[in-house]
Design a binder for these strands. Structure first.
Lengths: 147, 147
DNA sequence: TGCTTGAAGCGATCGGGTTGCAACAACATG
DNA sequence: CATGTTGTTGCAACCCGATCGCTTCAAGCA
C-alpha cells in the first residue's frame, strides 16, 4: 500500500519530468518548491511558500520562487488567484473551483464551478460577458463575520 | 433651466458642506478633486484623477488625492473597486452596481445588483457566505474578446 | 486680525512582484 | 569521465500603486 509520501513523490517526479520534456532542467530549487506546494495542499501565498522552501534551502531566492511558479502555471500544474489587495495565492490546478474570500477575516471558501452557472448564463445572455472568476476571488462576508 | 454645470456645482457644494459639518475644511485641493470626480463620471483611477487635478493645480500632491479619496469614502460619497492587478478605480456611490472586467482588454461592464441576486441567494444558502462584490470586480471576457 | 488645528506638500517607505545580469550547474556529447 | 552549452539561479535594483511621518500652511472661528 502506497503511503501518502510516495504518492506525492510520484507526482513530484511527474511534474519534474514535464520540465525535462520541455528542455528544462531539474534543479534543487524546483524540486523543493514543488514539494512545498504539494505538501501545502492549496492556497499558499508566494511568501508562505518562500518560508517553507527557505527553511530547507535558505539560499533559494524569492525571485526563483516566482519564476518557478510562473513556469508551473505555463505547464498547467498550478493556478494563482488574487484574493484582493494585492496578495495572490497559488493552488494545484486539479479541480476547477471558484474562491469566495471574506473581506473581514480573510477566510477563503472554495465552491464548485457550477454554483456560478446561473450567474454566468444570465450575464452572458444580457451582456455578452463571459464570467471567468478563476483568477480573482469573489468578495463578501463569511458565515461568522456576516452575523 | 439649470445647466449640467450648475447641477454639478450644487452637488460639489453639498459634498463640501459635508466636510464642514464634520469639522473639516474646504480647501482648494478638495474642491478641485471633487470637481474632477464629478466631471469624470465614473471609473477613474487615482492616477487619472491626479492628472486632471494637476492640470489645473500642479502642486496638488498624489498623497493628497489619496487622502481626499479616503475621506470621501468615509463620507459615503465615493466607492473604490479593484479591477485586478493592483489598480483601483473610484466612482460616485450613487447607484449600487457591480463591475465585470475583461481580463483581456480591460473593459469594464457595469451591471445592476440584481443580476447577482440568484448567485447571492444560492451561495448564502449553501455556504452561509454573503456575496458583496462591490469592492472587487468579477473577471471574465467581454463580448468582443470572448469571440 | 490672530489663533487653533485640520490639511497639504514633500520625500521616504512599504509590499508584492519583476527584471537585468553575471555566475553557476544540469544535462548532452565526445 | 571531462567538456561545453545554455537553461536557471542569486542578487540587487527596480516598478507600481499606495501610505506615512513630519513640517509648513491656511481655513475658519473668536
Amino acid at each position: 500500500m502506497a503511503s501518502v509520501e510516495s504518492v506525492d513523490t510520484a507526482r513530484l517526479e511527474r511534474i519534474l519530468a514535464m520540465f525535462r520534456d520541455r528542455g528544462g532542467r531539474v534543479t534543487t530549487p524546483r524540486r523543493t518548491i514543488i514539494t512545498a506546494l504539494l505538501e501545502a495542499g492549496s492556497h499558499v501565498t508566494a511568501d508562505e511558500l518562500a518560508d517553507t522552501v527557505q527553511s530547507a534551502h535558505p539560499d533559494v531566492h524569492r525571485s526563483t520562487i516566482y519564476r518557478c511558479l510562473g513556469s508551473l502555471e505555463e505547464l498547467g500544474v498550478v493556478d494563482h488567484v488574487h484574493l484582493g489587495h494585492g496578495r495572490a495565492v497559488y493552488h494545484l490546478a486539479d479541480e476547477s473551483h471558484q474562491h469566495l474570500v471574506c473581506e473581514s477575516c480573510g477566510t477563503v471558501v472554495e465552491v464548485p464551478d457550477k454554483v456560478f452557472a446561473t450567474l454566468a448564463k444570465g450575464v452572458h445572455k444580457q451582456f455578452g460577458f463571459l464570467v471567468q472568476p478563476r483568477h480573482f476571488a469573489v468578495a463578501g462576508r463569511c458565515r461568522s463575520c456576516a452575523g
